[in-house]
């Protein structure tokens, strides 16, 4: 697939600190790209630089083959941005506000476009209300509507589900998934399960540096580094020496009511479950569970962002 966004060696410095350092990653056309990182990692700064709101101190960002700069006007209508704090005029009515944004972006058929977006985001019922009087969920939807009202092909959504109630989160997530049929989306979130559900590709940023970037499956594979097996034995039974299967390490041991569960990390990636099962049974152990464990995104995220 075509890479429509290329971030190449981008650094953003503020007096006395570096917010983002030598960041490089790319986003493929038509994908939902997850952008992960703890608070203060540099996600919002990076997203604002991609949207052309902030200049880069060094490096380049190109979108649709054009260089992104705050002065460059050509790309502005191609990027829909929902920043972390949805920028809203609280003293404006929903419909008027969206019409205003559409005018700023030079939309031709303003009325149809605004009506369409309000309908898509179920805002029609509140179109005549002041934004300041709306609930957090509605405000966030208005924030998303302003990013969609000029029909930009590339969307940057900075933690769009943050602070919403569970039902609103599910609705918004479904909507984003629906949007991905027509648009490329760069999406940041704290909720890792959400990223796993929505994104095919991710970038993990920590302390202003990229820790990992690429296909989610590929990152899973890279992180695994060997094979993790979950082995369940009978109550009171302990795991024998498994060094005949290569070097190994017991990551975790827990006692359930009728099972001793061991999480064992083998350095070899070879699937040796058949031999291992026979080995354990031959030693008179009651093998109750033997399954391959793949690391959760949360494990990867914590590994990437801890103590570095």
């Amino acid at each position: 697939m075509d890479k429509i966004l290329l971030v190449d060696g981008v650094t953003r410095e503020y007096p006395g600190r570096v917010a983002v350092s030598n960041v490089s990653f790319s986003v493929e056309s038509g994908s939902i790209h997850g952008f992960l990182g703890p608070n203060g990692a540099g996600k919002s700064t990076t997203m604002k630089m991609i949207a052309g709101l902030l200049p880069v101190s060094s490096g380049t960002i190109s979108l649709f083959g054009q260089k992104v700069t705050p002065e460059g006007q050509e790309l502005k209508n191609k990027i829909g941005l929902l920043p972390e704090n949805a920028p809203l005029y609280l003293d404006m009515k929903v419909e008027k506000f969206l019409q205003f944004i559409a005018k700023l972006h030079g939309v031709k058929n303003i009325r149809e476009q605004v009506d369409h977006v309000m309908e898509e985001l179920k805002l029609t019922e509140v179109k005549g209300r002041l934004i300041g009087n709306l609930s957090k969920g509605f405000k966030q939807r208005v924030g998303l509507a302003q990013a969609l009202v000029y029909d930009a092909p590339f969307l940057i959504l900075d933690e769009p589900t943050n602070g919403l109630d569970p039902q609103a989160v599910v609705e918004l997530r479904d909507f984003i998934k629906k949007l991905s049929a027509k648009k490329t989306i760069l999406f940041s979130s704290h909720v890792l399960s959400e990223v796993e559900q929505l994104c095919d590709q991710i970038t993990i940023i920590h302390k202003g540096r990229i820790r990992a970037s690429g296909d989610l499956a590929e990152i899973h594979r890279k992180f695994r580094q060997g094979l993790v097996l979950k082995i369940g034995l009978g109550t009171g039974e302990s795991l024998p020496d498994l060094s005949s299967f290569g070097s190994f390490e017991i990551q975790h041991h827990s006692q359930l009511s009728n099972e001793e569960v061991y999480l064992v990390n083998f350095s070899s990636e070879k699937d040796q479950r058949a031999d291992l099962g026979k080995f354990l049974i031959d030693r008179g152990l009651h093998l109750m569970t033997l399954q391959m464990e793949s690391p959760e995104l949360e494990d990867i995220f914590l590994h990437m962002t801890e103590n570095r």
């Binding site: 709101l53 705050p70 209508n77 990027i79 920043p83 920028p87 944004i101 700023l104 030079g106 302003q146």
Partner: peptide, 13 residues
């Protein structure tokens, strides 16, 4: 209110 983002994300100079 960070609403300047609305102008900066648009072609307004």
């Amino acid at each position: 209110l960070e609403t300047l983002d609305l102008y900066w994300a648009s072609p307004v100079k």
